[in-house]
Nucleic acid binder design. Structure first.
Lengths: 221, 221, 221, 221
DNA sequence: GATGAATGAGCGTTCATTCAT
DNA sequence: TATGAATGAACGCTCATTCAT
């Protein structure tokens, strides 16, 4: 336990921290460019430039370009789920929670960073199994999130799917709608007040769809 | 009206016909490959091979690769709208028509050619204004289709949007859901009976969402 | 058999001829550079420069860099065997023919183009099976050449190997010695008269070795 | 002669020993990989991994990659010469000694470590003067070894070259043949008994060649 | 001296587009 | 108009070497 050992432990920790930081800097740069120009048009050199490191360094942290995309997708997916979960927890009822989650998703992701959403869906076509796995993984987790949200006996209101497939269908519909929103948002170029109204309408649509596929145990949601 | 002129008119017509045929052959080949391997991974040479013409010939019919994609999108869009329109016309009521349109869309496009749908949405990111226009054009027409379907006083049932944005929102939600279905369908790998059940659930979701955004003039849809 | 058909046949022939010519130009450039700088240090761009074509064109004629090396090796191998065969045919006896072949090989290949020899042996290590096959193919043919030369009952002098392996051993020894000569020639930097003397000594060595492994049917070679 | 000085001398010695050991560990790792994958395909990182040190440390012991190759060649050369010398010493006559040396070389080097031989010849093309010097140095020493072996009046049997160049020619032929054997051995894939027979044939070939270039003072070798 | 992350020049290969025939 | 060989810019990835710790 001499100062030497402490020192090396400390420097190892610092190294570790710096490595994590570097990795996250690269991911941020990649996310920005992938969203801006699309995966295929983004060059590793550009990512390195923005991250203010060398091309070789990128490859010290990520196996290859696709690995970078997977990292970006994982990050976005994690952030997205956390956002929705937090909003959901604040709801008074299940459907109120879902509404809040939808609104949060729309206002805190689709509006400020529409491209992030697109990345989760558009850019992962035609790639390796790893990438498909990353995407499937995200979808399964979201499906699980939605399922848990609907099924938990929160505030005494239990729900039931109208069929065994409804959970998946609802999850896919919700994510697809938001993906679509992310895609089209740039075409709308609406005034801010319209944007908010669109968000509200979309959430109503989503909740309306959900209601069609679930039945309340107590006939009251 | 000498034989000469007649002859040249005829041959001009024949040439015209052949040119159209050639163009359509190229488009079919491009559509197949774009759907199969994605736009960026498809090489002009491959398209030429399948169309059984030369690379140079492709450029005789289309300005560049992107122009080919626009042509493909236009074709798919036209086919899609026709499919939905025909199904819709057979419905007894507006919502019944929408349901039929959705089912037709799912069963006649998403199931047999899931990749075509993807093309309409996934592959058009990060391109020129022309391509964005093609896509916007498709979306606007679909929006119009949905609007017309809902608004027409067919069988005496007039509907009203709950807001001025509902038409667009509904159109975006529907197309997005089907795009999402196209994307994820391959991950499901379900049994055929499940597939059909999924289609039915999705349509219920869609119709449920629509109901949330419209009000009947006569309180009966 | 109109002029048109003749024309297209002719132009097809010309195209064919030009293509062959182009291929051979590329091979010549590649051979020069591979010999000069070694396979790995030679860049496709340099080959294209010397051949006065574009980089892409190289890939129109050869699948990849290794394919180019295989082509070069095949050419050199073919030339080498022809050279030795012709010299051998002029000999009065088998061993005289072998001596002539050795001298021709040394004077017409090792001296003017020592690097060509090296290419056959040195640069093919650590590559794909295709390349190894090309090399094995060359060795087997040379083994066959030597075998045929020794075994043919030319001028009534039949020979017999002292063992079933002698044919291969002799072929490997001869090719190895010449490969070694090619390798070391640049270190010698001898006067021309020495060079010739070295060639003669080497041939004596080779023939002496062969004599040790064969027995004459008539005790006279 | 205080304990301090002794101590520092001892520790200096220990450090010296450790340094040599480290250097030799690196060389062993490099030799293994160079032989296995070829010089150019071997990465410094791989060598460091096998030697269980860091990349930077390799550069503490060797100026650069080529310097490593030179070190490896020197080691192999030294080992090879020692091997041949020891075997030669056990012979009853000069040519018997040469035969023994050849057999030892074949059985103790070519068979167990064919790649080492290749390194001496194949991988040193297209490099700096230092490398060429290392190789020339090896060749000159082997030439000297052969010369000494043939010329020494061992057991009363003096020999004479048939020309002033014979010594070099013989040395080059012998080393070339063994280099060739190393190269081709993997293509033969013979049974062990064939392998031994090949070794014996090759030695006969070598000795036969030598006999052609030397004359006995007493007409008896 | 030892470490190992960072560097960046370098290269093989692809493919949309052009153009001589 | 059709052809298909030629073009060359573009980019992903490697790895010998350096250097701050």
């Amino acid at each position: 336990m001499g100062s030497k050992k402490n020192g090396s432990t400390r420097s190892a920790l610092r190294r570790q921290r710096e490595k994590e930081l570097r990795r996250s800097t690269i991911l941020t740069a990649a996310e920005k460019l992938f969203a801006q120009k699309g995966y295929r048009k983004t060059r590793i050199e550009d990512i390195a430039d923005i991250a203010e490191i060398s091309v070789g360094s990128v490859y010290g942290h990520f196996k290859n370009k696709e690995d970078l995309l997977i990292g970006v997708l994982d990050d976005i997916g994690m952030y997205t789920r956390k956002l929705a979960r937090n909003a959901f927890m604040e709801g008074d009822s299940i459907l109120d929670g879902i509404e809040r989650a939808g609104i949060a998703f729309f206002e805190e992701l689709c509006l400020p960073y529409p491209e992030k959403i697109r990345l989760l869906f558009d850019e992962s076509i035609g790639f390796s199994d790893h990438l498909i796995d990353a995407r499937r993984n995200f979808m399964e987790k979201v499906t699980g999130d939605v399922h848990n949200a609907l099924m938990q006996a929160k505030h005494g209101a239990g729900l039931k799917y109208s069929s065994g497939l409804s959970g998946e269908v609802i999850a896919v519909c919700i994510t697809s709608i938001y993906a679509g929103l992310g895609n089209y948002y740039k075409f709308w170029k609406k005034q801010p007040e319209d944007t908010m109204a669109i968000g509200a309408e979309v959430v109503r649509y989503i909740v309306g769809g959900i209601k069609s596929l679930i039945v309340s145990n107590e006939e009251r949601l």
